[in-house]
Amino acid sequence: MYRIKATSDLLPELTRGPALTVTVNGAAVEAYDGETIAAVLLAAGLWQLRRTRRRGEPRGPYCGMGVCFECLVTVDGTAAVRACLTPVTDGMRIETGQETAP
């Protein structure tokens, strides 16, 4: 729904890479080679990537370039991965809503 279909001179025609198998919190989501984790999650309507330690507040992507550290998700068991900088890979298991390691 959120992947752009319309084209214009500002948004010229584009073909994504092949579809990949990616799960988020155990459930399969639509994902294509070349997309970042953030784009995949947002395209699926999932904005709450983690919850904060002190206040338990939801956080999602903010800066889009890896300097704010809000978009932290767990990828294949590794915590605190920045979703905006990390491309999805085939078979990737993403978990949201967590904060840190062991």
């Binding site: 330690r53 904060e99 840190t100 390691a101 062991p102």
Partner: peptide
């Protein structure tokens, strides 16, 4: 002398 600090972790 140099030191560092980790992220918060569960008590171990």
């Amino acid at each position: 002398a140099e030191s560092f600090i980790t992220e918060p972790i569960a008590p171990m």
